[in-house]
Amino acid sequence: MSSALQFYMSTLLVYLGVSLIACWALNLQIGVTGVLNLGFIVFQALGAYTAAVLTLGPDTSNGGFQHYVFGAELPFPVPLLAAAGVGALASAGLGSIGLRRLRSDYQAMVFLVAAIIATDVATNVTGLVNGAAGLSLVPQPLSANVGLSPLDYQWFYVGLMAILCAVAFLLIRRLTLSPLGRSLRAVRDHEDAAEALGYNVYRLRLMVVVIGGALAAVSGAALVEFIGSWGPGSWFYQETFVYLAAVIIGGSGNNIGVALGALIVPVALNELPRFIPDFGGPGFVDAMRWVVIGVAILVFLYFRPQGIIPEKRNRFGLAGTVRHRWSGLATRARVRLGR
């Protein structure tokens, strides 16, 4: 492979890793528990900003051309972990207000409005995270210590990303396969029945919002440490719908399906327009990309709501033990989004 191609492929792999973590986290909320978190991108953004300001150092560094709060220069894994903590705290705060006594579609609206407002605040309060210009020149983690050539560093980061993805996958898998995962699906499939069986529906929802928020923050932190810049344009509220489309198309509720979705939607759909010639007016191709995402969501929700790889349905043996099996194509098209 030529080094240019290697650069491109390794960058793409890092993006894939970010999408994987984000899609699994969103799937835990939407696919498994049925919490339609339309403000998901905010928590990714929060993680990215946290990691950025904790890596950049005080805002007098770099000639003081950026203005932000809480600047510090912490060694590598710390900004990532801090991002997870901030993501968890923020989602706990918003979740405890938005999830508490509202019906599921209202919860979705509160999250959506929160996402739009968060962009407003980050853009217009310039002292917070450098306003509309955003943060840049975030140093890459360990780049001074490992002493690799830029290309080797790319592959080093791909390795870091792979480790993060593996940890995220094991965590999510553990959650969804455990008895706790079954109670989450009970909340999704029949809220009232779950409540009647003694589950605290609000607490379970809040839990996945917090775990998902922390993971989203980690994905954002990993992204910003790699690309080095982050601004309001990176997390416009519509970006949530890219991950949402990935979850629906891949197979909501199924972590493998969602991984396929993460490959198809955020990676392929973002990269493909680079290879087709620009046509129409300025911004036409980009606008059409969003139209394609919207149409894909509608088509899948109507014709194949269970996604490409549907959720495995648990089968129970005689002793009441759970046997995991592919539901496969034989399962009648069950309306995944129906109760």
Partner: peptide, 16 residues
């Protein structure tokens, strides 16, 4: 389609 599924439908229409 469930209530929150309809929210996704209306959002997709909004995007389009």
């Amino acid at each position: 389609t469930a209530l929150w599924g309809m929210v996704i439908v209306t959002i997709a229409v909004a995007l389009i």
